[in-house]
Design a protein around this nucleic acid. Structure first.
Length: 500
RNA sequence: GGGGUGAUAGCUCAAUGGUAGAGCAGAAGCCUUUUAAGCUUUUGGUUCUGGGUUCGAAUCCCAGUCGCCCCA
């Protein structure tokens, strides 16, 4: 005898498996069947005309997520990319045999159905099903229908379940897709070329971050996963591609938190014969299109503060050191070139309750004030300009003040959303900046990039946009993990598979 | 890396150190326009893992695994 127990009614997996085996024994295998999908759910529902029931025929398909069985008829709902649509099955219409078989379907099964659209007496556009086909049997039950899936570990490890049962997750992650599509359209309209550059790099440059290391067997060499896109894209400016961008995954071997995932997505854009002012126009154009095409409003509610963020009109522009002076309550910036600077900056930072580490350079102390005390208060879109040069070694120095650089950092909702520079194209200055940086940062110098600069790079504006943070902002998500389909977790089991 | 917190039925959650329960899902039955459909009956547990304390542990202690929060 088999080892299947006589009563399997409590074991949903066993019940479903038996149904599958029975179907196969009767000559029907759902996994070998298919169905046509002429319309998505929402598109189908739009075809119904008031007062004209059963006039339009559609073929829809999706996962069974609601079953309301009333004996000789039933209302069910299926879920597809656009959402749910209700189906109505009547024994009289589909016939005895098909109806009996339909009653054996389970929540989670994937079916195709064809029929005509009508409006129920409660006002819901519904498909009056004439024929249906089971095209995938779900052997495992769905999470609870009302509360959905709340166990965060399962939400991340089995995101598909989250997407099936948690409508907010479906909508939020779909919005991310639309955000990226909108950005690509904005850039395409302005004749930017989308390019792809290496993830595996011999030198991980373009930012200060600890890289992941991997090994290539055939070449017998280590590679670093890229930590920025910048140095490759600028080589393309040298090559004569005047407007380029990449939306790509970058990898930083650092902490994981609500705002950090080890791999995340950056947009980097470079435009020859432009500068950081040109990038201001570009980022505003990107936001204007996003507001119009994706958000549907020029105002969004900032989740953390409840304030309305307004993207219309002119955006605020503020000098970095004006903000610092305002935060510390005196003209700290006037002491920038004096020997007192470090001590005064430390004092001011401690006054504000910040912890200052012993080895920090003055610019690091001041930037601690900026990132802890100023950035979180910049809720409305704000271009912070005239940053100290140590913060971005790849930017052009300011003509009036060589300690500053021609850049902005766009802050919105208390987060840095997009830094942009007038790009440094002087190979000598660039080499000096690299050398200064390499010393403290154990980061190897990308001499190949310097060689490219020696061939001549046009003046250019460049900008980076953290796509994940942009999505947090625009979707009101609480954590970066809520806008990444599969966030990084410790390897572990999703829990399935231990049943057999 | 440090601190806090959590893990109980497929899912969402209960349970003074003393027989582990409910809702949904599942099973059986009724119901031909339902909306978390409704009604009747009912199955289902290695209480994360491993130790310890105790007459007795889901509960207390220790260690570990994984998640979440805060900090670095």
């Amino acid at each position: 005898m088999s080892d299947i127990p006589a009563d399997i009614s409590h074991d949903q997996y066993a019940v479903r498996l038996k149904k599958l085996q029975d179907m196969r024994a009767a000559g029907f295998d759902p996994f070998r069947a298919s169905t046509a999908q002429t319309h998505f759910s929402a598109d189908a529902m739009k075809l119904h005309t008031e007062g004209q029931d059963n006039a339009v025929a559609v073929k829809v398909a999706g996962r069974l997520v609601v079953i309301r069985d009333m004996g000789k008829s039933q209302f069910v709902k299926i879920l597809d990319q656009q959402g749910q649509i209700q189906l109505y099955l009547k024994k009289d219409v589909v016939g005895e045999e098909a109806y009996v078989a339909f009653k054996k379907l389970d929540l989670g099964d994937i079916i195709g159905a064809e029929g005509t659209l009508f409006k129920t007496k409660t006002g819901e556009i519904t498909v009056r099903v004439e024929k249906y086909t089971l095209v995938a049997k779900a052997l495992r039950p769905l999470p609870e229908k009302w509360h959905g899936l709340t166990d965060m570990e399962q939400v991340y490890r089995q995101r598909y379940l989250d997407l099936i049962v948690n409508e907010e997750s479906r909508a939020r992650l779909m919005m991310r897709s639309r955000i990226v599509t909108s950005i690509r359209a904005t850039l395409a309209n302005r004749q930017f070329l989308e390019v792809e550059t290496p993830v595996l790099e011999g030198v991980a440059g373009g930012a200060a971050a600890r890289p992941f290391v991997t090994h290539h067997n055939a070449l017998g060499t280590d590679f670093y996963l890229r930590i920025a896109l910048e140095l490759r894209l600028k080589r393309l400016l040298v090559g004569g591609y005047d407007r380029v961008y990449e939306i790509g995954r970058i990898f930083r071997n650092e902490g994981v938190s609500r705002k950090h995932n080890p791999e995340f997505t950056m947009l980097e854009v470079y435009q020859a014969y432009s500068d950081f002012r040109g990038m201001m126009d570009l980022i505003k154009a990107i936001f204007t299109d996003l507001c119009r095409d994706v958000i549907g409003s020029f105002e969004i509610k900032h989740a953390a503060s409840g304030q309305l963020i307004n993207f219309a009109g002119d955006w605020r522009e503020a000098r970095y050191f004006d903000l610092i002076d305002e935060a510390v309550g005196f003209k700290l910036s006037a002491l920038r070139s004096t020997p007192d600077y470090a001590a005064k900056a430390t004092g001011a930072a401690q006054q504000l309750g910040l912890e200052i580490h012993a080895g920090w350079q003055p610019f690091e102390i001041v930037n601690e004030i900026f990132s802890k005390k100023i950035e979180p208060t910049l809720i409305q879109p704000t271009f912070v300009t005239h940053l100290p040069k140590e913060l971005c070694p790849l930017a052009k120095l300011n003509q009036q003040d060589a300690g500053l650089i021609d850049v902005f950092e766009l802050c919105i909702g208390g987060m840095e959303v997009a830094p942009a520079y007038s790009e440094q194209n002087d190979p000598f200055v660039q080499r000096e900046m690299f050398e200064a940086q390499v010393g403290e940062d154990q980061q190897k110098m990308d001499t190949d990039f310097l060689l490219a600069l020696e061939h001549g790079m046009p003046p250019a504006g460049g900008m980076g946009v953290g796509i994940d943070r942009l999505c947090i902002l625009l979707t009101g998500a609480e954590s970066i993990r809520d806008v990444i389909l599969f966030p990084s977790l410790r390897p572990g089991s999703a829990g399935a598979g231990d049943k057999q």
